[in-house]
Design a protein around this nucleic acid. Sequence first.
RNA 1: GGGCCCAUAGCUCAGCAUGGAUAGAGUGUUGGACUUCUAAUCCAAUGGUCAAGGGAUCGAAGCCCUUUGGGCCCGCCA
Length: 628
Amino acid sequence: MAFKSIIDEIENNLNKILDALSISDIKFSVEPAKPGFGDVSSNISFLLSKQLKKSPKDIAEMLSEKYQHYSNTLVLKTEAHPSGYLNFFANWEKLNQLILSESNLDEFGDVDIGKNTTIVVEHTSVNPNKALHIGHIRNIIIGDTISRILTKANYKVNVLNYIDDSGLQVADIIVGFTHLGFDQEPPDGKKFDHYCGDDVYVKTTEKYESDSSLEDVRKNVLKELEDGNSETAKLADKITRRVLTNQLKTCWNLSVFYDCLNFESQIIRSGLWSKIFEKIKEMNLIEFENEGKNAGCWIIRGTEKEEDKIIVRSNGTATYIAKDIPYAAWKLGLIDDPFHYQKYEKEQPHSRVLWQTTLDSNNESAKNFTGEKVITVIDSRQTRLQKIITSLMGKFKSISDAYVHLSYESVTLSAETAKILRLETGGKQAQMSGRKGLYVNADSVYDLLKKKTIEETKKRNPEMDPSEIEKIAHNVSVGTLRYEMIKQDLDKIIVFDLTKSLSLEGDTAPYIQYTHARASRILEKSKRTPLIDINFSLIKEKSELDLIKIIGLFDIYVRDAVNNLSPKVIARYCHDLAVAFNSFYEHVKVLELGDETLENSRLCIVNSFKITLEKALDLLGIVAPDRM
RNA sequence: GGGCCCAUAGCUCAGCAUGGAUAGAGUGUUGGACUUCUAAUCCAAUGGUCAAGGGAUCGAAGCCCUUUGGGCCCGCCA
């Protein structure tokens, strides 16, 4: 509750006042105040202005007076601001005690929005024919962060990664291996996923332009992929699984973990499509077109100005979007589960078990990776298709918003970075393209960051053990990359610039992580555990109060992040915490004050800050080092 | 042609959902602070017709409409 306690107290009292005035249906706000306007503000006077035929200022004065007659534990005084706002000043002695003691609890920041219901978060879902590039990373980090935040909000989260192992992109590299003579072993220790993406995929698609006969080869390969028993399918299975293992390595390195891998090939072979096809036919959600350009196809009728969408071609085969329908329905638990589950062959770090679908029965107990709600993280270019899926799922499931497409803008390359990749754009940003080899691999960005952070850490800790430096550099590099992907809103394009991405100053993860290291060192040097039963009247410096206040706002921001599915809210909160701590650090001393009691009270603040920041950063998948 | 998204300081972005006080950060530039709990830091200065126009409102960066500029999507491809 923390800071929310004072908000609730004010809200209650204001409601009582309204009751006494026989006023109802007023949805006023009670929010943390802007600096300089007390601690909590309400807009209530503005909303009453019309009804009471008085100026907001007069109403604020009236309310302020009345407020005195109600019981207050956390509010010290009220103030009617000339602008009309009703401002409240906190009893900081009590509020400090409340916030600092609550911040020591494990469940600090928890909010119960999910009520322990299940929710699916699907993210990553990259074709297993290439290495992850910086654009995929945005998807992955958004998905992982959302999963962490939803878990904090008491959802039981099932994280899924959909493996499109039977699509055109996979067919392309198989063509490369079977018809263009690419060796199945990458050269000189190159990571296999990089080799498939950088070499096999790019060069094979290049070949299509000069050799049109390859088109037929490709079509055949694609067809053979659907039949699990073909030699082609077996080769593809071997290749894609090897690429997948490499991709997962990249994800795990970034502290991204999953619960289950769902293979498209198995969805196709499970026959789920024909079941759902029958069902949507029965429900009249799909129509057979007898005439016009789509004659002979099954279509979903477009609404008003939108075009009809073909689901089954006139030759009887299902289109791309059709494949998404059974999967979406499966995720929502709307159809009998055709899968068995087995543990993934490689062990996922942090002893979180990773499962994968299989069509072969085994001895594992039954699993359920579906959810009452589903969040699918896919970039905004798929909005149109996802809208169709969403509306279709809405007709299957009565809960509103059961299926959510969490959309985000793509990552583009800055003109300078494109130039490094030998693409002249005339100063404009460029869309990445796996096909054209125009992208920046995630692994290489990590490597560059790592190299730089090792240097920086060494500089500051010349005596430190190399393995310790390595560990810190890893956490800082991962933090930097993750923070860059999450700190802005989902609807903003990220223009990725290789040089700028290496910045470790300002609004970056290292800035935030550094404050944690500072706090840790103070606690370490104090050589004692701060005691919480302190004299709170000693805390009166502005920088102290500001810091405690922000600590107390944690759950409010978690709530905000969940309700708006907005990971950046937590990123900003972490940044705010760090700014407040840095200001505290510069303005007041903690150690060697010659005043045991004051020292202890400040140590309490430092400790609360440290554990709160740790929790908040954990929601972003960022580890806070004790030294850096 | 139709649809979706974006436009706030030189640059990158918060604020917009739920209208109200003084529009905030970072970065850049300029100046200052390390014999001090780590300077990956802090402090200060600089920098804004909130794209343009109109509307509703006591009140608009925010809501409605129009326009402009930019991005993306619109295949019996995936």
